[in-house]
Design a protein around this nucleic acid. Structure first.
Lengths: 401, 401
DNA sequence: TTTATTTGTCAATTTGTTTTAAAAAATAGA
DNA sequence: TCTATTTTTTAAAACAAATTGACAAATAAA
């Protein structure tokens, strides 16, 4: 038997025709998805593959019912071509956002349209309860839409990381550390009958914006996630980046004040102490884990409550710091801000924080700081995108490993 | 004529057999370079290419004189195989580090051994003077080693960025902005008769450590560069990462103090104000751009001078912040510290800053913070590595764009 | 009407990897 | 010493996907 000691680095693993083929198929699908409807000739130019090759690939994608051919509306000299467009409903995926109190789930198609959504309260803030809720959500959908279930390609789950055994569990009990163990994921896969992709919430939201939203076609961007804490997710060179242990983007624990407020993480002066929903709740004396808090904040914003305005004023320099760090470290094209908070809150925060201090790199107007396209569902939608991404999007790992 | 509107994103550009070939050749060479001497069977396992394919590729690399076959020393059952090893001197490249006062140059082989080195003072702190110095260095080497010149594959240049038109020139006149314009690079290429690769100093040093030094084989790491200012260079997923405008890693201008010391960049409280050779010089009342400063610092360190010790004590929390930011943002396997400073200084700084505050991810002992392998020449060596990297190392861009 | 231009299709070709097969060389065990 | 086993080496044929070139068809512009 051949030893298949798989290399895990791009730099040391070769490729072959088979892998090239799957890559090219992904690429063509990606171009159709993001730029379609589009003629085959145009695809050929964009991908730098020959017309004939595109012809073949498109034919095969049509065979799989992933795309459709339509008569071109473009007028011009020459043979009138057909255009190719994505068959948006060819695939569905679950996206489930799990936090301490509940699981928020969507079922999305290839265009990021949620065809189904639901929420379910967790019986307790434990991984077991999360497992139960996830399984219940999937089976509920299956019962209601048995006809659609076969087109579901996978299930993306997002929760507050970090996961994995390489990480030091911090004092904060927010993290669902055990959710991400190999055993638990394998168990869930068997139970659900679906491949599972797990990602931390900010990273998932970033993938979501990249796949469906404001980050579509953007090479490098950061997603700033206002969850309970403060996190960031990165898409670098078109690929999600999560670091060596999956903990990249833990912006909330960057120390911004040398002898600042103590943080449950053990350090003090963490950014999250000053800029997060958690910090706002402490300022307002609201319970952090209560769903009513969401509405309360929303109402206070609408009422232009003095206390909340004061907090925002105080938080602005911290937001500037966050943006400063992201821009200087990663030099992204854009920073997308979102989270599971009232949209009015983020909108006001960004508005009051504008103009942001001068940056080193010039960016297109309106492209420096953006509001996320997915709103409150950014994480759940992102989780679904993570799953879609692993199935359909071009990725270095599939080309080479 | 075919329109060759080249796609610039990995996600939208296809590949073919030809590109796969160049990738596989790079991969095999990379494996031999980093893991050689190595048997062909072993290469086959590592790269997940078939034995026969490795046979073919190795034969072609031998034809090009890039590698050599040697009798294997491995004993064991079975036919004794040959081992493949890198022909270290098959290629040379220039690495030139340009700062305000001088150009430091090395000529390196594929193993990072400097076969030649020189320095040359700049007549003035202008791009023109830099051009002149670079040209003089190359022609000096050519005159002295005409026989070796044909094996030179390129010239890497490193200077304090940012370069390019997309960037806002900041108040600091350290930057050689004009060096990186298209026109100037084209001019230099014609003048030198060599392909040029330009990179900012920290990024170059990072590439150097990744290609030759402490970052060999490490997937994700950051290089913390003590130049005049403070910069960071990143290698992510085995590839250099420099951001959308080439300004990633400008760690020195991260604002760490809300109403801190004003910085020439326009903001105030930049990390560089507290942690950099520039800051040290200000503390000691030494001239920043004078070469004698280097020796002075070295002597003060040896003498355990109180004033410098006091400065370091003060700077330690700032170094902790820098490491904290790098680790939280990128979750690298390791952080490599280096720069154009006396080695004793960095050594003492790291020593006094140890232990570093707890991190989120567990890292192998001794692999969390490392001293750079290239010492003072890290940037020049890095510049050479940048050139080598573009010629020989596997890269997504060559596989796909 | 003629010509230029673009798209779609077919068949043949190219190219690099993989598969298959067989020989050669060394060790371990009988 | 002989034999089975293991591993490397080499050669030839098979294979799979992209490319190339040629030509037909359709349309707009001249």
């Amino acid at each position: 038997m051949e030893k298949t000691e798989k290399s895990h680095s791009f730099r040391t693993s070769g490729t072959n025709l088979r892998k090239a083929k799957t890559h090219n198929h992904s690429v063509v699908l990606e171009v159709i998805r993001t730029q379609g409807p589009i003629s085959r000739t145009k695809i050929s130019q964009v991908t730098s593959l020959s017309r004939q090759t595109i012809q073949n690939i498109v034919a095969q994608l049509e065979e799989l019912d992933l795309i459709q051919m339509t008569a071109s509306k473009i007028v011009g000299r020459g043979h009138p071509g057909m255009e190719v467009s994505l068959n948006k409903d060819a695939a569905l995926s679950f996206g489930i956002h799990v936090d301490r109190t509940r699981a928020t789930a969507v079922v999305c198609n290839l265009d990021g349209q949620a065809t189904w959504e639901t929420t379910r309260d967790l019986s307790s803030a434990t991984p077991e309860a999360a497992n139960t809720a996830i399984a219940a959500i999937v089976s509920t959908f299956r019962k209601a839409h048995g006809d659609l279930f076969p087109t579901v390609v996978g299930c993306g789950i997002a929760a507050a990381g970090p996961f994995g055994s390489q990480t030091v569990p911090n004092g904060d009990p927010t993290s669902f550390h055990e959710l991400g163990t190999q055993e638990n994921l394998a168990l869930l896969e068997r139970q659900l009958g679906l491949p599972i992709a797990l990602e931390n919430d900010a990273a998932a939201a970033a993938v979501g914006e990249g796949f469906y939203g404001a980050g579509r076609g953007v090479e490098n961007f950061a997603f700033l996630q206002f969850g309970v804490g403060l996190g960031a997710g990165f898409v670098l060179k078109g690929d999600p980046y999560t670091g060596s242990h999956g903990n990249a983007g833990e912006l909330g624990h960057v120390i911004v004040e040398l002898d600042g407020e103590p943080c449950p993480c053990g350090n003090s002066g963490c950014l999250e102490r000053y800029l997060s929903i958690d910090a706002l709740c402490r300022h307002l004396g609201l319970p952090r884990d209560d769903r009513s808090t969401f509405n309360t904040i929303s109402e206070l914003i609408d009422a232009k409550d003095e206390k909340i305005i004061a907090w925002i004023k105080n938080a602005i320099p911290r937001l500037h710091q966050a943006v400063n760090i992201l821009e200087l470290m990663l030099d992204p094209e854009t920073i997308i801000i979102g989270g599971t908070t009232p949209e009015s809150f983020l909108k006001l925060l960004i508005q009051m924080a504008t103009p942001f201090p001068a940056a080193l790199s010039k960016r297109e107007d309106g492209k420096r700081i953006q509001n996320g396209a997915a709103g409150n569902f950014s994480v759940a939608l992102g989780a679904s995108a993570v799953s879609m991404n692993t199935h359909f999007a071009p990725s270095v790992s599939r080309l080479v490993l």
